[in-house]
Computed example of a mutant assay.
Amino acid sequence: MPGHARGHLLGGWLSALAGLAGAGLPDLTGAILLIEAERTIGLGQVDRQLTQLIRSGALDGLWGIVLGRFPGFEDYTDRGWNLVDVLRDRLTPLGVPVLGGLEFGHGPDPHAVALGTMAELDTASGTLTLRPPAHDRYG
């Protein structure tokens, strides 16, 4: 879904997030949620984990979602669905801006993102900007 959002960047590996629903996941109200995952089983796993987060109410009050790497799903389909279909089906009803294709998370040459910082998501420009920028304390 297109749009613009500003909030604290929280999230990470989808499996860990789903496992924390109802058992210690921080309040995501006003946050931009970062999600990434690697394929260990199939599309049903992604669907179940997102459904668990949605039905638990954990995603109520989100202001935006950014999607990182999903290695192993590149050419994977199941019953005519691919990863984009599942993500669109689960995330569009949330009514928040969603920006995908960012290079963080699992996979070769993994890139980290500073969680807890203020972030600005802009789907029109395809950017996620951390504000203030994360600084190397030794630099």
Rank of each mutant, 00 (worst) to 15 (best):
G24T: 10
A124Y: 10
G95A: 15
L67E: 07
V113K: 01
A114G: 05
D60K: 13
G7N: 03
I32S: 01
V113P: 00
I54M: 07
R131K: 11
P132V: 10
A18N: 03
A21I: 08
R88C: 11
W81L: 15
V46A: 05
L121K: 01
P132G: 10
P71T: 03
G19S: 10
R79L: 12
G61L: 04
V66L: 06
Y76G: 12
R69G: 07
W81G: 00
D89P: 00
L94M: 09
V96I: 14
L25Y: 02
L94D: 09
A119M: 09
L87C: 07
L25I: 09
D75T: 12
G100P: 07
T29S: 14
G126M: 10
V84Y: 09
I65K: 02
R55C: 05
L25R: 04
G72K: 02
F73P: 07
H4A: 00
G19P: 03
I32Y: 00
L130F: 02
Q45D: 15
E38K: 07
R90E: 11
H135D: 13
V96G: 05
Q49H: 15
L10V: 10
G64H: 04
L128T: 02
H4W: 14
I35A: 03
A112Y: 14
R55G: 06
L67R: 01
L17C: 08
D89K: 03
G3E: 08
E74I: 07
L50N: 04
G72I: 04
Q52W: 00
G22M: 08
A112T: 12
W13A: 11
P71K: 00
L91I: 06
A114H: 10
F104D: 06
Y138I: 12
L94K: 05
D109R: 12
G107W: 01
A37Y: 08
R6M: 12
Q45M: 10
S56D: 15
G44C: 06
D78R: 12
P133D: 08
V113A: 06
P93N: 06
V113E: 03
L9Y: 05
N82T: 10
D75C: 00
T77C: 03
V86C: 08
A124G: 10
P110S: 09
L34T: 01
W63V: 14
R79C: 08
Q52R: 15
D75N: 09
A119N: 05
R88D: 15
G22I: 09
D136C: 11
I41Q: 14
P132L: 11
D85C: 08
S125T: 15
L10I: 06
L17W: 02
P110N: 07
L17A: 06
I65Q: 00
L10G: 01
E38L: 09
H4Q: 12
A5L: 07
R131E: 14
L28D: 03
